[in-house]
């Protein structure tokens, strides 16, 4: 069983205004992404979700998968984006550490980059079963900074 360094609960991305954090939930985990754009907040939320499983920085971007989703509103679009990533992780047995999203209206086109899960190296702590609609929120604060959040079921 490999010992791993503790994973931070959040991480600012230097110079980008983008960051992510976990917020506490008794049974599951809250994930939140911040960014100067809606897309950046979505990308950071995906990093926060990955950090529930392992250190996102320890994932090599060896392979890129395209993702497309469409939803009636931007909040469900966030849930769809995260659940599409959960699906790719589960069926490909991969972890993803880099995310890119482009949002037009009710549609998202994105890509996720990562590598096959390596139990020894990634020492995955928990499996994300899915993104829930609990605490699901996408909004912009008066200073123009976006956040995108929800509870993920582990």
């Amino acid at each position: 069983m490999p010992e791993t360094a503790p994973i931070p609960d959040g991480c600012p991305q230097a110079g980008t205004g983008a960051s992510w954090e976990h917020f506490p939930h008794v049974a599951d985990v809250g994930i939140r992404g911040f960014g100067p754009t809606l897309e950046a907040a979505f990308e950071q939320a995906a990093i926060a979700m990955t950090a529930v499983v392992t250190d996102p920085g320890a994932i090599n971007p060896e392979e890129t998968i395209e993702i497309a989703c469409q939803a009636p509103n931007v909040e469900l679009l966030l849930a769809d984006w995260l659940n599409a990533i959960v699906y790719e992780m589960a069926t490909r047995k991969m972890l993803f550490g880099r995310f890119s999203a482009s949002i037009r209206g009710d549609s998202l086109i994105g890509s996720v980059s990562g590598e096959p899960l390596d139990i020894e190296r990634h020492a995955p702590a928990a499996e994300v079963k899915g993104a829930t609609l609990s605490e699901l929120e996408v909004a912009r604060d008066p200073a123009g900074r976006w956040h995108a959040q929800c509870i993920v079921d582990v």
Partner: peptide, 11 residues
């Protein structure tokens, strides 16, 4: 205890 993840055990 046997587990693939120390962090999982801590949690």
């Amino acid at each position: 205890i046997r587990s693939p993840s120390h962090r999982g055990v801590a949690e």
